[in-house]
Amino acid sequence: MVVESIPKAAGFIYGIIAFAALAWLWYSGRFTRRRALPFLAASVFFGFLVFAPVFPYQFQLLVLRDAAALGSPLPMAIVALLAFIALTLVFGRIICGQVCPAGAVQELMYLVPVKKHGRAESRVPTAVRVGVFVVFLAAGFGLSVNLLALLGLPAFFNLTVASVSFFVFLGIVLLSAVVYRPFCRYVCPYGALLAPAASRAAYRLRRTDACIDCRKCERACPTGAATPGAGAGECYLCGRCTEACLVDGALVYGRGR
């Protein structure tokens, strides 16, 4: 379905606009899961339309030093990807939450009303993420192997149904109906870079003195990030915790501890 005549820059422009709008919604206290739905739908639409802004795949092409496929000089791509890491240091993982098409399609699939697996205690061990990231770098830099293509990320958004890899990523998307964001949390190389940045974000979800320790936010969180002491690295700013919170002002997005 990808329309080659539309420049991928259109997807990145959308990504910047969507990021700014979502950051404002969180900052102003107006973010809700219902208001996030149009962004999720638009992100998936741009994924199928121009295959951008699919940040993990752009990062994959950068590792492979494939400027032709990127559609921009390598230095420009490096600056763009570093800029979004810097934005994550300020605002958290908004990119992963609602802007990246790969994450958005999994987020929408998780809305399917079926029994979920691994909720609230499913933090991914850091060693797993580091190990997968090392394999990704070794395959890209050392062997020039495009692992994300083998997993079917481009085939899925290009609707290349004749390819086996298409069904690999389709399987990952279907799995995300019961397991929260398996690609983002176990595989995505760009997410592995954004997680440490998000854990130190200036603006993040935090509890206030109004918290009554009902733990509803912890039970609602699909990654375990709402657990005290867990950090914000695995927080995708999905809004489930704030939606479940019983006390107005007990869980807020802002600066501070």
Rank of each mutant, 00 (worst) to 15 (best):
P38M: 03
L151Y: 09
F31Q: 08
A21Q: 15
V168F: 13
A69E: 14
G15W: 04
R255Y: 13
N158L: 14
D213S: 15
G29T: 06
N158D: 07
V135M: 08
P7W: 12
V187M: 07
K216F: 13
S43A: 09
A250K: 00
V50R: 06
V134I: 13
G118H: 09
V50A: 00
Y14C: 00
S165C: 01
I78Y: 13
I16M: 08
P196K: 03
G256P: 00
I13E: 09
A250Y: 05
I13G: 10
T160L: 14
R93V: 08
R35N: 12
D209T: 11
A102V: 09
L82K: 04
A232K: 11
T126V: 13
F12T: 11
R33W: 09
E4T: 10
G47N: 02
G152F: 04
G231M: 03
L246R: 14
V178D: 02
P113E: 06
Y57I: 01
A192T: 12
A77D: 01
P196M: 03
A102C: 07
I172V: 15
G97H: 04
C188A: 03
A226Y: 01
V247I: 10
A10C: 14
V50K: 04
R119I: 15
A138F: 09
T223N: 04
T227S: 11
Q58R: 13
G131Q: 10
V187G: 07
V130T: 11
C184P: 03
L193W: 01
F51I: 06
A42L: 12
G191H: 08
R200I: 09
A230R: 04
L150T: 12
V252C: 02
V105I: 15
A220C: 05
G239I: 10
P125H: 05
S163E: 11
I95W: 15
Y190L: 05
C238D: 12
Y190W: 14
L170K: 03
A201D: 06
A68N: 15
L170T: 07
V178G: 06
A127F: 13
W26T: 01
F31D: 09
A226S: 10
C214V: 03
Q60L: 06
V63E: 06
V114C: 08
W26G: 02
F55Y: 15
P56C: 11
R206F: 12
A86E: 12
A149W: 10
L64P: 00
